[in-house]
Design a protein around this nucleic acid. Sequence first.
DNA 1: AAAACGGGGTT
DNA 2: AACCCAGTTTT
Length: 342
Amino acid sequence: MKQTFADKVLAWFDVFGRHDLPWQQSLTPYPVWISEIMLQQTQVQTVIPYFDRFMARFPCVNALAEADLDEVLSLWTGLGYYARARNLHKTARIISEFHQGEFPRSQQDLVKLPGIGRSTAGAISAICFNERVAILDGNVKRVISRVFAIGGWPGQRDTAERLWGQAEAVLPHERINAYTQAMMDLGATVCVGKAPLCEACPVNEGCLALEQDSISDYPGRKPKVSKPTRRTIMLVVKTRAGEIRVAQRPPEGIWGGLYSFPELTPQALEALTPHLPSAPRALDTLKHSFTHFHLMIEPMLVEIDAIEDIPRIDHEAWLSEDNSEAFGLCRPAQKIIQSLLG
DNA sequence: AAAACGGGGTT
DNA sequence: AACCCAGTTTT
């Protein structure tokens, strides 16, 4: 009987896999869930101390549900991505209040919970409940795309569909929990992003990318899109006493709720200039990059004698040396203020 | 500077 | 369902 893909992966796991990680002690959903969420964003070695502290303080889902969000966040400090800690807390309350403290036992139901997507739901369900479902985290994406030479960027819908389909096609019928952990281990320790250890790989025979000597082509990279560059003018008003005017931005969108300088179009600046107490002076242009575009910011400085010399604007606030800590300033505003005050 | 990451939100 | 977004680390 020929060894299947899953057979080889499982045999490898029994010898070379990691079996002693803190969340592998009991394969119950609470610790598996916590570890999966932490591992989404951080490597195993970093996660371990956080996981241990977290479990010591919140040993079960009800303990987490009863906690204040602030305390959850404080135990999360240093892990980043705090929205996920909020989702963790939210989900604990849902499970505690609406599921009698019991986790849903299928991927289909787990995925309805905040912060749990298809892959994380699959991991919990496969590891804890032996449900025969696939996972597709970053590790598994690498393994599957290479062994089966599935090209294209995984962020692309059709590529993701082919990866999920292939991951499901090779699932074993037994030991689904061990297999799920095995695939994550294989991607994390052997089929790594750069310089994978193909000699040590249990599925190197028949790995299409290896046969074609094209490992580095998989997974396919995100097509690079040239980001557009936009420009904006920011009006910086400063008194001779050193007070600086900022304005709170709307709660939605770029820098939502943060303080910044009012943005102007060139036309608006032109129309405004005759009404200003003194001519605006251009400060150094600064560049700020977002995920989808670059922004060239042209700050224009207007110096005035006193706050009363300039009309009020909506949501304004005046920064001085004493109170500047009190405002959440967007990055570019911080830089401009720094250059202004030295 | 750009990619990777896995999930959320919106249309 | 298809699309785009945010926040952070890694490359």
